[in-house]
């Protein structure tokens, strides 16, 4: 397996995530698509770590996972707060900055 295999896989997974973000209106699903994109990035990092025999890629994967955990916690908190105020999780209905 060369790194190119992993890069193409990762690009495909990333584009699936992009497709989810631009076509779905359910904010939870948009969040999950972003997680898919982060995973695509991680596959890249691990593939390059293998390519150069260097642990750096692994370390950055761990940082990405930590950031993803933080992002999920805050993002889901925002979704819950929005849902409590507007009774919706459709992103098109969340179009005002203040109410």
């Amino acid at each position: 397996m060369t790194s190119t295999h992993y890069l193409v896989l990762s690009a495909a997974l990333f584009m699936i995530g992009v497709f989810g973000v631009v076509t779905r209106r359910n904010i939870v699903i948009i969040f999950m698509s972003i997680e898919l994109m982060l995973n695509a990035v991680n596959i890249n990092l691990i593939a390059f770590s293998l390519q150069w025999g260097n642990s750096l890629g692994q370390v950055f994967t761990i940082f990405v996972i930590a950031v993803a955990a933080a992002e999920a916690a805050v993002g889901l908190g925002i979704i819950l707060a929005l849902y409590r105020n507007k009774e919706t999780i459709n992103i098109d209905e969340m179009n005002v900055m203040k109410w």
Binding site: M1, S3, S49, L50, G53, S55, Q58
Partner: peptide, 12 residues
């Protein structure tokens, strides 16, 4: 292709 194959890589 990487110099070492996945099975013997120690990076991970």
């Amino acid at each position: 292709p990487p110099a070492t194959d996945a099975a013997s890589s120690t990076a991970g």
